Amino acid sequence: MTRVLWLTQVANLGHIPTRPELTAGTDLTNAIAAIDGWSLSNKAIETPDLGSTFETKIPGTDEADDSSLGFYEDKVSDEIEQLLSKDETGWIVFLRKGDIPGNRSMDVFPVRIGSRSPNYSTDNEAAKFTVSFSITEKPVQDAPVPSASGEPIPPKTDKQ
């Protein structure tokens, strides 16, 4: 059900793609052999005080885990290798529950490609390569999948 897309353009400064931008992207889903990272974590700040032996913490800065996608080699085409070459920038979009307009299951990661490396093996398995990504800005999580009208569905706020 999950779809993974590579986008070269997202005009919205909040990194929420429109339907035409999703449609213009490259669907990587069927070529993916492995996924690693693509999550956020928080570096807690210790806040000890003199009145307790218990050391409390508060949330600190967020960071993205090292992230990569592993792909099956294609014997005929090198489209993915051409798209995902070192230093290219773009967006990796995960549609976690599929492409269902309005569903709040779209995660958008602004990225720069750090490396693309073949995975050599003597085992009886498909040839693969790995692309490593640096997440360059805060990703958007749980965004609504844009409708067919082409406009992004605005995120919910407390004021709506």
Rank of each mutant, 00 (worst) to 15 (best):
residue 95 L to K: 04
residue 61 T to L: 13
residue 121 S to D: 03
residue 82 Q to A: 15
residue 115 S to L: 07
residue 90 G to C: 04
residue 17 P to C: 03
residue 36 D to A: 14
residue 28 L to C: 11
residue 122 T to P: 00
residue 85 S to M: 08
residue 35 I to D: 09
residue 33 A to P: 01
residue 66 D to A: 15
residue 73 E to S: 10
residue 99 D to N: 15
residue 20 P to L: 10
residue 75 K to V: 10
residue 18 T to E: 10
residue 107 D to E: 10
residue 90 G to Y: 04
residue 14 G to L: 07
residue 42 N to Q: 09
residue 5 L to D: 00
residue 83 L to P: 06
residue 48 P to T: 08
residue 47 T to Y: 00
residue 91 W to R: 09
residue 127 A to R: 11
residue 83 L to A: 02
residue 130 T to Q: 07
residue 59 P to W: 10
residue 95 L to Q: 11
residue 102 G to M: 06
residue 72 Y to K: 11
residue 19 R to F: 02
residue 11 A to G: 05
residue 45 I to H: 06
residue 134 S to I: 10
residue 101 P to W: 00
residue 36 D to P: 00
residue 91 W to L: 03
residue 123 D to W: 01
residue 95 L to S: 01
residue 65 D to N: 14
residue 22 L to H: 01
residue 48 P to E: 06
residue 29 T to E: 06
residue 41 S to V: 09
residue 131 V to C: 13
residue 39 S to L: 13
residue 70 G to Y: 04
residue 120 Y to P: 01
residue 41 S to C: 04
residue 76 V to Y: 06
residue 58 I to P: 00
residue 33 A to D: 01
residue 97 K to G: 08
residue 27 D to C: 10
residue 93 V to K: 00
residue 76 V to G: 02
residue 106 M to K: 11
residue 124 N to V: 01
residue 71 F to Y: 10
residue 60 G to V: 10
residue 110 P to M: 13
residue 34 A to M: 13
residue 48 P to V: 09
residue 134 S to R: 05
residue 79 E to A: 15
residue 26 T to I: 14
residue 114 G to K: 11
residue 73 E to D: 13
residue 115 S to I: 04
residue 31 A to M: 05
residue 80 I to M: 02
residue 8 T to Q: 07
residue 59 P to V: 14
residue 78 D to C: 00
residue 41 S to E: 13
residue 18 T to S: 15
residue 29 T to N: 03
